[in-house]
């Protein structure tokens, strides 16, 4: 079967892996010249199904749990060292609330925090450790998947504006994200902002989340003293540059996590607009010969594998995989 995939973002690439693995002849058509316009390019790359339970629907953890193993199979830069969640002493209530809404963690004390991340020793009295979670660097993972696909005979055509009607294929999988709003009308954009900094003075080996009543922050280590700082979430589809307010919120909170961030160099301020449906859950749906995979919201790396498998099952109904959720 010949399948044309629209979009070489996280949804398109992961779907290509699943379909090519089932023997399909896959071609990916990407509007941009590379992956840098994908939401995933500015993503945190956290595989944190249990931390996400704090705010997400239960399906996110169910669908996301197998993602760690999927990424370990397909990208050798996947690091499973867990997630550390901390909070300032005066915001201890936030940690208690986070713990009530999540699972698969160990409550830990100051000593254990110091053992896990020596840089944070003495800075926080209590935290939660989610040992099964993992992280990866999206800017290595996307090109790695693309290279793997190319090696497996998948064609990726960059810089091509796709006209689905004219694609010569048996099936189309539309993974265009927000651009698919022309057909999926209830898609909306949710803006996320991130800052990349370099600080040779700080070593962290796993994602750290700092809870705060106003501004949550996550810090994802990229190696070589580079860190991705994120946390803002705005109901907006603007791609405009990051605002001073958002930058201050993120940087202030990073400084609260570790004062050495004050001396870090700012390498990049980035903005991504994620596609989301009204319930913030992803969907796979079929219209004619086209299958749509969209609405990954802030859970691209986490949910793309399960949703791609769901799309693959629609196209190849006779393969056996573990069942996933929402098919509308």
């Amino acid at each position: 079967m010949r399948i044309g995939i629209l979009g070489a973002g996280i949804a398109g690439l992961v779907t290509a892996v699943e379909l090519a693995g089932r023997g399909a002849r896959v071609e990916i058509i990407e509007r941009a010249p590379d992956h840098a316009e994908a939401c995933a390019w500015v993503a945190g790359g956290m595989l944190a199904p249990w931390c996400e339970q704090a705010t997400a629907e239960p399906q996110v953890a169910t669908l996301g749990a197998p993602a760690v193993a999927w990424w370990q199979r397909h990208f050798d830069g996947t690091v499973q060292r867990g997630t550390l969640v901390v909070t300032a002493t005066r915001d201890a209530g936030e940690l208690a609330l986070f713990g009530r809404r999540t699972e698969r963690f160990e409550p830990i004390d100051a000593e254990r925090i110091g053992a896990l991340e020596p840089e944070l020793a003495g800075r926080f009295r209590q935290g939660l450790f989610f040992p099964d979670e993992a992280h990866l660097d999206p800017r290595r993972a996307l090109p790695a998947l693309a290279a793997q696909l190319t090696a497996a005979g998948v064609t990726i055509r960059y810089g091509v504006d796709a006209d689905a009607a004219r694609i010569d294929a048996d099936r189309i999988v539309d993974c265009r994200g927000l651009a698919a709003r022309d057909t999926l009308e209830d898609l909306r954009g949710v803006r996320g902002e991130m800052i990349v900094v370099r600080s040779p003075d700080i070593q962290l080996s796993r994602p750290v989340r700092l809870l705060h009543p106003r501004f949550g922050l996550y810090v994802v280590p990229r190696g070589d003293g580079v860190f991705m700082l994120g946390g803002t979430l705005l109901e907006s589809s603007s791609h405009d540059p990051m605002t001073v307010r958002s930058a201050m919120d993120v940087l202030n909170t990073a400084y609260a996590l570790h004062p050495a961030f004050a001396e870090a160099e700012i390498l990049e301020l980035g903005v991504g607009v994620r596609p989301a449906f009204p319930d913030n859950l992803p969907r796979v749906l079929r219209r004619g010969r086209t299958v749509y995979l969209n609405g990954l919201y802030r859970h691209g790396f986490l949910l793309a594998p399960a949703m791609a498998q769901q799309a693959a099952r629609l196209i190849f109904p006779h393969t056996t995989e573990t069942p996933a959720c929402t098919s509308a």
């Binding site: 909306r188 954009g189 803006r191 705005l234 109901e235 907006s236 589809s237 603007s238 405009d240 605002t243 009204p278």
Partner: peptide, 15 residues
Amino acid sequence: REAGTQRSGQDFWSL
């Protein structure tokens, strides 16, 4: 708070 000063929060506002 939700959408910045730009008129880019249209999706949310129409919701």
